[in-house]
Amino acid sequence: MRLVVFGKSGQVATELQRRGDVDAFGRESVDFSDPGAVARFAETVEAGAFINAAAYTAVDKAETEEALANTVNGTSVAALAKVAAERGLPLIHISTDYVFDGAGTAPFPVDAPTGPLGAYGRSKLLGEEGIRAAGGPHAILRTSWVVSAHGNNFVKTMLRLGTERDALTVVADQVGGPTPAAAIADACLAIAAQLAGDTGLTGTYHFSGAPDVSWADFAREIFRQADLGCAVTDIPTTAYPTPARRPLNSQMDCGATEAAFGLPRPDWRAGLADILDDLNV
């Protein structure tokens, strides 16, 4: 089965390409700021299934570019889903914990009410709704706190700051599951193979790393594994204001994903060790 990946330079798309046997197409081939171009490309490309890893991910910038975020993450995703449904092709789409409001302390089940706090979350929710409306075989995979040896992410930022400073303040009241992009890529491939054989698996799923942790404790583990003597002091979200509000609770119940596809939550600590190996740390 030929797997066509939308997105080429992002963390998950990069990991998918490292696994081989996929054809990845970036913005130079198909621009998600143009829904018509996405539809035309999807209509003609040879494929057995689509994996959508293309997205507008600038969470803070989306507050002032919501129209663009909505097009990339919403309208174009709906256009892709419509073509996939018409062609009978499974679509695996990566979504986010930002579709929730982050309230409470319990993990969010897949059927929990959504309530995005900002433009980015609203745009990703639009994409989810467009996929469901298209009616084709699909798996919407919500994930969180994506990290890898590629691109910009929390691990790489902490490694840079940890070599420059003796101490850092890090937010401690946001809790979630860091998720290695490599694990997401493996999950996408497994889901694509199973969904192609059983369209009854269509639905929305959660996939995040375990155990759940605060950003501050995540930073401490990064410094421990990297052997960096940088002290971490806990601070509340209110002490680190950003243009876009972040959910305090990003914990997600991933039980349905394991039940349907046999995919347990990945241990992010082992994933972190692999990332550090990739970075030669």
Rank of each mutant, 00 (worst) to 15 (best):
G102P: 01
G102D: 00
G102M: 02
A103S: 15
G104M: 05
G104Y: 03
G104Q: 08
T105I: 12
T105M: 11
T105F: 09
A106D: 14
P109A: 02
P109G: 05
P109L: 04
V110I: 14
V110D: 12
D111M: 11
A112V: 04
P113E: 07
T114P: 04
G115F: 04
G115Y: 08
G115C: 09
P116V: 02
L117H: 09
A119K: 03
A119W: 06
Y120L: 03
Y120K: 05
G121N: 03
R122V: 09
L126P: 00
L126V: 05
L126A: 05
E128M: 06
E129V: 02
I131H: 01
R132Q: 12
A134Q: 08
G135I: 06
G135P: 11
G135W: 11
G136F: 02
G136I: 03
H138L: 02
I140W: 02
R142L: 06
T143R: 01
T143D: 04
S144R: 00
W145G: 01
V147T: 13
V147H: 09
S148P: 07
A149L: 12
A149C: 15
A149I: 05
H150C: 13
H150R: 12
G151I: 07
G151W: 04
G151T: 13
G151E: 04
N152V: 15
N152I: 14
N153K: 11
N153T: 08
N153D: 11
F154H: 10
V155F: 05
K156I: 12
M158Q: 14
R160F: 15
L161T: 07
L161S: 12
T163M: 11
E164A: 15
E164S: 14
E164P: 08
R165A: 12
D166K: 15
A167F: 09
T169I: 01
V170E: 02
V170A: 06
V171A: 07
A172C: 08
Q174G: 12
Q174V: 11
Q174I: 13
V175H: 04
V175W: 00
T179L: 13
T179I: 05
T179K: 12
P180Q: 06
P180H: 10
A181K: 04
A182L: 14
A183D: 13
A183P: 12
A183G: 07
I184H: 07
I184L: 10
A185D: 03
D186H: 14
L189P: 12
A190T: 15
A190P: 08
I191A: 09
I191V: 13
I191P: 01
A192D: 05
A193Y: 02
T199E: 10
T199I: 12
T202E: 07
T204L: 05
T204A: 00
Y205D: 00
H206A: 10
F207D: 00
S208L: 08
S208A: 15
P211F: 13
D212Q: 15
D212T: 15
D212F: 15
